[in-house]
Amino acid sequence: MRVLVVTHEASRSGAPRVAQMVVRALAREGHAVSVLSCRPGPLLPEFAALAPTSVAVLPRVRRRLTGSRWLHHVGRELDVVGAWVDLLRHRADLVYVNSGAAGAYVRAARWWPRRRTILHVHESAAVLTDLLAGAGVRRIPDDVELVACSPSVHADLVRLAGRPEEQVALLVSVPDEDRVFGLAGRAGAAPSIGEVVVGCCGSVEHRKGVDLWLRAAREVLAELPDASVRFVWVGDGPVPTAQLDSRIRFAGPSDNPYPAMASFDIATLPSRDDPFPLVVLESMLLGVPVVAFGVGGVPDQIGDAGVVVRPGDVAGLADAIRRLVLDPVARRELGDLARRRVLSEFSGADFERTLQKVVAR
Rank of each mutant, 00 (worst) to 15 (best):
R110I: 03
L183K: 15
A320S: 08
A338W: 01
V153P: 04
G306I: 00
A217I: 13
S34L: 01
L36T: 10
P42H: 09
R353V: 12
P270V: 07
V74S: 08
A187H: 11
E205W: 06
L281Q: 14
E219L: 15
F231Q: 12
V81K: 07
A227W: 11
E165T: 10
G14H: 02
I321M: 13
S271N: 05
V35L: 10
W111S: 14
G209D: 06
R247A: 08
A148R: 03
V85R: 14
L324A: 05
L212D: 15
D143P: 08
L278H: 02
F47T: 01
G202E: 00
I321T: 05
G14E: 03
P311E: 09
V168F: 02
S150A: 13
V80G: 08
V288S: 02
A216P: 02
L26V: 09
V279H: 00
H73C: 06
E205K: 14
T129S: 14
L128T: 11
G335Q: 01
D273L: 09
V55T: 14
H154F: 07
S173F: 03
A101W: 06
Q301I: 03
V158P: 06
V291H: 02
D178G: 10
D327P: 04
E333R: 14
V33C: 05
T129F: 02
P240I: 12
R322A: 14
G67M: 07
V279G: 01
P253D: 07
V33F: 09
D313R: 05
N256Y: 02
S99D: 11
H72I: 03
H120V: 02
A32E: 15
G103P: 07
G41D: 01
T354L: 03
P191E: 06
F181N: 09
S68V: 09
L119C: 12
I193G: 09
I193A: 15
N98Q: 12
F276D: 04
T354C: 10
V280E: 02
V121P: 02
V57R: 14
R76S: 04
L119T: 12
G303Q: 06
G306A: 00
G136T: 12
E9F: 05
E223G: 13
A242Y: 07
V174M: 00
V229Y: 07
D336M: 13
L317Y: 04
Q243H: 14
P311A: 08
R2E: 05
A126T: 11
C38Q: 13
A338D: 00
V197N: 07
R353T: 08
L71R: 10
A48Y: 04
P16D: 01
A27Y: 05
D176N: 13
P257D: 00
R341M: 05
V95I: 15
V359R: 10
V33I: 08
V3D: 05
D176I: 01
R110Q: 15
V198I: 10
A318M: 08
D350P: 00
G348T: 12
R361C: 03
V198P: 03
L244H: 12
D130H: 08
W84M: 15
R69D: 13
V18L: 01
P59H: 06
H206T: 13
F231A: 09
P270C: 11
E123K: 06
A292F: 00
A305C: 07
T7H: 07
G14R: 00
L146Y: 12
E145M: 11
A251N: 04
D313A: 08
S124E: 14
L171Y: 00
